[in-house]
Amino acid sequence: MVASTADTVAPAKPLAGLEWTLALPLTAFFAVFFVTPLLLLVVVSLFADSEMTRFGLDQYAKFFGDAFNWKVLGSTLFLGVKVTVLTLLFGYPLAWLYTRSGPRMQSALILVVILPLLTSVVVRTFAWVVILGRDGIVNNLLLTLGLAETPLRLLYTENGLVAALVQVQMPLMVLPLITTLTRLDPNLLDASSALGAGPWRTFFKVTLPLSLPGIVAGCLLTYAASVTAFITQSLVGGGQLLFMPQYIYQQTITLHNWPFAAAISMVFMVSVLGVVMLLNLLGRASKGYIHA
């Protein structure tokens, strides 16, 4: 009998078709401990006063009525953009190098990429405190070379924070890029150069457009991770720079203002999800472009 597996219908078995029940435990777990808390967050954000006695949109009005809050939200979202763009600029060539390397070099490269992902965020951030501090490497180098008279203040500045975040989040960008770039058909690149395109032209006309799904996936993860990076933001950013995560933490733990903390969490969550969805749309559009 010749039958392709595709159109073979599995004979009815006891238990067959009941595989979906295996998803029940996790579904129940998520319903209680993930969805319910988030719904509760919405409810709490709708209390008008911090004693939670009556409902109203006062917390949101309070948030959007103050220019200070707009600045915190804006600088957080923009911080994510800066980090994501720089991570892509450095991460892409690294992923490209991976596809051009031999197997041994590839394993070495992948370990260098994964190691920071698995080392504690506190440890990685701590490294930046050492590098950027008054006695740190950068300052020592600048003083030795005579490029600066006194140690520069690098820690607790936004540029220092961006540098640290780029390093901390780089693996999230590089891994999806490696995945797409290794799947890319090498014949296309050969065809492009055989037809007379130089490496730059091949890169911008063939490699880059074909790797758009990987770029979008990497940007998505990097963006979401860098706007919420509480530890790096608070240790390298210090007291002078305030971003949404610390703002939420302050309002909850120090000021016990739950409704306001919940409202700014909602605003933060919705803005981040908005950016993520926008990137996702771009990703879909890019897939269509490739298959067209």
Partner: peptide, 20 residues
């Protein structure tokens, strides 16, 4: 649904859990 904790700001979930 199961993947959403990866893109959701985890800090907001932490706060939501505390309130819950």
């Amino acid at each position: 649904l199961f993947m959403s904790p990866l893109v959701l700001p985890a800090l907001a979930f932490g706060l939501a859990s505390l309130m819950f």
